[in-house]
Nucleic acid binder design. Sequence first.
DNA 1: ATAAACCGGACTAATAGTGTACGGATTAAA
DNA 2: TTTAATCCGTACACTATTAGTCCGGTTTAT
Lengths: 145, 145
Amino acid sequence: MIKLSKLSDYAIVVLSCLAAERGQLQTAVMLAQQTGIPEPTVAKVLKLLSKKEIVNSVRGVKGGYSMTRIPDQVTVTELIEALEGPISITSCADSEIESDCHIAQLCPMRGNWNKVNSAVKSALDGMNLSDLLLPVSPQRKGGRA
Amino acid sequence: MIKLSKLSDYAIVVLSCLAAERGQLQTAVMLAQQTGIPEPTVAKVLKLLSKKEIVNSVRGVKGGYSMTRIPDQVTVTELIEALEGPISITSCADSEIESDCHIAQLCPMRGNWNKVNSAVKSALDGMNLSDLLLPVSPQRKGGRA
DNA sequence: ATAAACCGGACTAATAGTGTACGGATTAAA
DNA sequence: TTTAATCCGTACACTATTAGTCCGGTTTAT
Ligand code: FES
Ligand code: FES
């Protein structure tokens, strides 16, 4: 169905909150309350994002998360790869890893999905986080809806 | 992981065989033998393709399948949608169907994945089946490898 | 020392995808 | 008219992936 997981979706939501208060540290709990996403899930998303250095994490008592860059500097490709792993359209599309394709020997287009793959990837490279943040930036941030 | 299912992959393989003998009818069994893909699976792929009129099916004793158009006339978008259903990057990306998103009320980018979605779709629209058929067109077709 | 907060990984349940099977419909040919 | 080849549609079991949660460990301000 060529869709990505919900985690990416959540990530955008969480990042929106973070982007609204750039520089400020916000804890996972705070973000969970603002977004309505369950806390453990928010934590998971944040962990993934920090691994790819899209957000910055500070441990310890006054810790929390903040964005490392402005939204324009975060490509959609980065986001998706942080949440879902490398973008590869098919099992045998990735670089040269055709191992798990059991018909590779007689496949007439071995690896040609790569073209599709890079087409998609460059489409994604052309977009960044600020394209995804709604023009609803200055909204109140404490309440629920 | 933003990848599509194996069925799409198989579809290309099967279509390659079909494209090599354009106009000729070929049965699911023949195609299965040529491709090495199990027959029931080939049949499934063919059914999906015929539903979207990418291949033409003829029933009855001398029946079989053939391509309806030349490969240049079949976009990758069509192919993928035939095999995997509509291309929608997230649950709430499709037109206006945000029903299954339980945080839609407070989501700051409700539906903005649509931008990503159309970027991907147009990348895919720009490619067609002949881009995926390897330059190995005039190969013998009876044997296995 | 204590408590707030992140880190890493493991675990379970739910969902989606893979591959197969079966009964039915259609049609050329015997 | 009967038969057999062939597609059609759907339904099913099996497997892989994803979603969501939990827990013990580490860091750090007070
Ligand atoms: S389908 Fe895997 S190599 Fe072609
Ligand atoms: S995440 Fe679904 S509407 Fe925003």
